[in-house]
Design a protein around this nucleic acid. Structure first.
Lengths: 230, 230
DNA sequence: CGTTCATTTGACTTTGTTCAACCCACGTGG
DNA sequence: CCACGTGGGTTGAACAAAGTCAAATGAACG
């Protein structure tokens, strides 16, 4: 008999205080850069696939998405980055990122300085250990996303919403009423459905009294029922 | 204009000399373990989800698969591990693995000792950097697998076969004729189809003269045509 | 030689996409 | 202030395609 630990604890979005804190460079600008905090407006890129990435960033406000364009031309959304999330870890091992990161709305990020505080911790520097754990989480998230792909469309949207609600809750916001930062197309693309299908499911859930939907403002009226959809 | 680097270079299986070599513990047994090399027979587990994982292993023969069982009971295949692949890196950051790893057939692995040679390399120890790059590769593989999920069933199988062929080729084997180590069910599960569908596609490709299929012995008769299927 | 399990094949059903029209909010310019 | 155009979102109907169920075939092994 084994403890069959499942990854269900890790959602489609990062959980509470998502990743261990690194050294935020709040007062002093990092390594001679002009401003510590970088503000991005809707549609602006933090970096693009192939760019050199010199810092790891933490989201300090707003939401970003990372994606990539396949050679067949279609876009694949890798994930959304909420408040507190770390961005750019993947690039560390390779120098350049394989993903592009863009702001969904006005967002800001703060570079995280890469200096190693404790050099002799069991797993080399504390930083490396943290990056490990970040990438680990990322792998689980993708595995979960992959699993989502094998369930029905209603289940996908339900999971998306519940996970998003949980992420909101972790950040101190209302878990039953929130604003979705991404458009239907992005949402649909992320969970692997056609936008029309997503729209239909929203309507269906609204009609069943489980949700209230007006544009991107969502209210979950019945968490239990939503969970049952999955 | 950006260099839109895509991850297509990384396949569904690890490429040549998949991951940077660590210190193999060939002569001396690692940390007082009986034999360095561990042999597993078909169906035997290297470890299970939740187990403490003390070593990183490298596949020295055979093929293994890593998977996990979701709470709804269905199995999700995370990946197959071929000769030279590293197993267990994910566990390093967390102590225990979230995945189970089982041998598809008789297989052997050699533990990789975790001692840090150069402590002051730009990115802390060499080891950490290597593990980074391993996990990075893993993230890309999952992203690619996710992308696969959005294409038609024929394309999925075609990609699977071509990638497997490439992996074989990298290891010095024939890229046009090989033996698939996993059953249809596992194959289907991995690429997200029903076993019957996989069977049908095999037949279709056979009838079109692109493949020769007898049980798990595959011969690719027309690489170009197979590529066109995608 | 017979049992068992995996794979294949066929017929049918379900379901999500596609295509198209429509609605609505918003911004522009007359 | 209102007409207009645009883009995102919703809805409807028809189609295509993969899954499911069930049966047949084939391979492996005692």
């Amino acid at each position: 008999m084994h403890a069959t630990m499942n990854i269900e604890s890790t959602g489609l979005f990062s959980a509470v205080e998502p990743y261990p804190r690194l050294n935020e460079s709040t007062p002093e600008p990092p390594r001679g850069h002009p401003g510590a905090r970088r503000v991005l407006h809707r549609g602006q890129h933090l970096f693009r696939s192939g760019d050199q990435v010199t810092h790891v960033y933490r989201v300090s406000s707003g939401v970003l998405k990372s994606y990539l364009i396949h050679q067949d031309g279609d876009e694949q959304i890798i994930g959304f980055h909420l408040l507190g999330d770390l961005i750019g870890c993947d690039a560390l091992a390779g120098g350049s990122s394989a993903f592009s990161v863009v702001a969904l709305d006005t967002a800001s990020v703060t570079p995280v300085t890469i200096d190693t505080p404790g050099f002799h911790s069991p797993f080399n520097s504390e930083l490396d250990h943290q990056i490990h754990s970040y990438m680990r989480t990322e792998i689980f998230r993708l595995a979960r996303l992959l699993h989502l792909e094998r369930s029905g469309p209603d289940a996908r949207l339900a999971r998306f919403l519940l996970d998003y609600a949980a992420a909101q809750s972790c950040r101190g916001y209302n878990r039953s009423e929130f604003h979705l930062p991404m458009g239907r197309k992005d949402l649909a693309c992320y969970i692997g459905l056609a936008p029309e299908t997503v729209s239909r499911i929203f309507s269906r859930l609204r009609d069943r009294g489980i949700l209230s939907v007006e544009n991107n403002h969502i209210r979950i009226l019945d968490h239990a029922a939503l969970r049952d959809v999955m």
